[in-house]
Amino acid sequence: MLEERPILQVRGIRKRFGDRHALKGVSLELYPQEVLGIVGGSGSGKTTLLRILHLEEEAEGEYFLNVPGLEGRNLLALDRYQVPEVRRWLAMVYQDPSRGLRMDFASLTSVVEPLILKGERLYEALVAQGLEALELADFPLERAGSPPKELSQGQRQRVQIAKALAKKPLVILLDEPTTGLDLLVQATFLDTLRTLKRRLGLSMILVSHDLSVIRMVADRIVVLYEGEVVEEGLADQVLEDPQHPFTQELVGAKL
């Protein structure tokens, strides 16, 4: 078949919060240049899963990234001082922009922060790379100096995208990125993601409860229900030929 190795792989992810089993053995794979949509209702564990992928939560199981230096190493077994080294391959776009951005600093400053972390020490180079990333994210450059607190929600999410792009990560993780966006803004935003995927060959994992969002960007879909993967497959397939009762409910409810 196709000789392809996933760039990201998790196996048997289990997570408990006290007595509550948030994730009960989740496995999935992400391949290069694809968008994987993770869909589920509240309580499905999808956001927890994303946080685990970003190494913000501990969990049982195995997590591999196919990058030089980290092959074969279970990232869930790393100690906290090794986490920053792994995070440089990941970028996260939060549902709430204030978690990913400095709301009072210029937007450009938030965008260049990962570059500073990587060690860039030339001011002009930082500015140039930051503006380039904002442009890729379809952000109006004349507002690069405005702090996110003065921007619309859609613009804030674009700043987050720019920050993720500046990092040139292996995988971009997105947690309900279109929350609070009205439909047209949402569609434009998702279109930007799609274009970026094609132009830059990005790989992304997008979490959403909203099927229309997933539909616009995802190549493959994983359906989570109460902490377990109940269905997975090609995006159009899961949406038009749902097998699992929960997926059928989800798709039916959407219409």
Binding site: A187, D191, R194, T195, S212, R215, M216
Partner: peptide, 8 residues
């Protein structure tokens, strides 16, 4: 059925 891509 055309994919909904309002801004392309």
């Amino acid at each position: 059925f055309l994919d909904p891509r309002p801004r392309t």
